[in-house]
């Protein structure tokens, strides 16, 4: 299976195709904690809130919900820039090996999980169709009870034909650009 086939398999599913396993997920990771001077203080365990397993192909699992940036700044005047946002990780596994990392953004005081644009622009945020479908799937499976479509539209995001995952890290062309990694972790064997 290639990475494209893998991701296409995921976005062709609906929430009913998945099982959601909550903690304990047995997906613990080390997280270095720093003190107020930015120095390493201790190492904690962290664990994603949920694991998703594709019922028809249990080789495909997603660890979802780990907070990456709790204080993510959506640039002004983008909608939802005046409310708290955080980025979340969706780590995609194939046969227990991580093969893709998708970053999502939880907006409006964590009321909706949306795709994380590679860049924020002053106008519309073009988002690859696959990325939209992926974020919507995650929102519907483990996100708050809010309307993804409504939030997507209000956020100024628009579906586009951009490749997903992005082949290379795009150049930062906008003055509102924020540093965001593409997050691709490789492809399954």
């Amino acid at each position: 299976m290639t990475i494209d086939e893998y991701l296409k398999t995921i976005i062709s599913t609906t929430p009913k195709d998945w099982t959601v396993v909550t903690r304990p997920t047995l997906r613990h990771a080390f997280a270095v904690q720093v003190n107020d001077s930015g120095e390493e203080e201790r190492i904690d365990f962290e664990e994603p809130p949920a694991i998703l397993a594709l019922k028809k192909n249990l080789s495909i699992t997603i660890a979802v919900g780990t907070v990456e940036q709790a204080k993510y700044k959506i640039p002004v005047p983008t909608p939802f820039s005046q409310h708290n946002a955080r980025t979340l990780l969706a780590d995609c596994f194939y046969d227990n090996v991580i093969v893709h990392r998708e970053r999502l953004v939880s907006v409006d005081r964590q009321h909706c999980i949306l795709p994380l644009p590679t860049h924020w622009t002053k106008e519309k945020q073009p988002i690859a169709l696959g990325k939209v479908a992926f974020a919507q799937l995650i929102h519907e499976l483990v996100g708050p009870f809010s309307d993804f479509g409504e939030y997507f539209e209000q956020s100024g995001m628009v579906p586009s034909e951009l490749p997903w995952p992005a082949p290379t890290k795009p150049a930062q062309t906008q003055d509102m650009a924020l540093p965001v990694d593409s997050g691709d972790a490789g492809s399954p064997a």
Partner: peptide
């Protein structure tokens, strides 16, 4: 009172 938000240094 400190914020220990993920992804940054603690903030007073």
């Amino acid at each position: 009172l400190w914020s220990h938000a993920r992804g940054g240094t603690p903030q007073l």
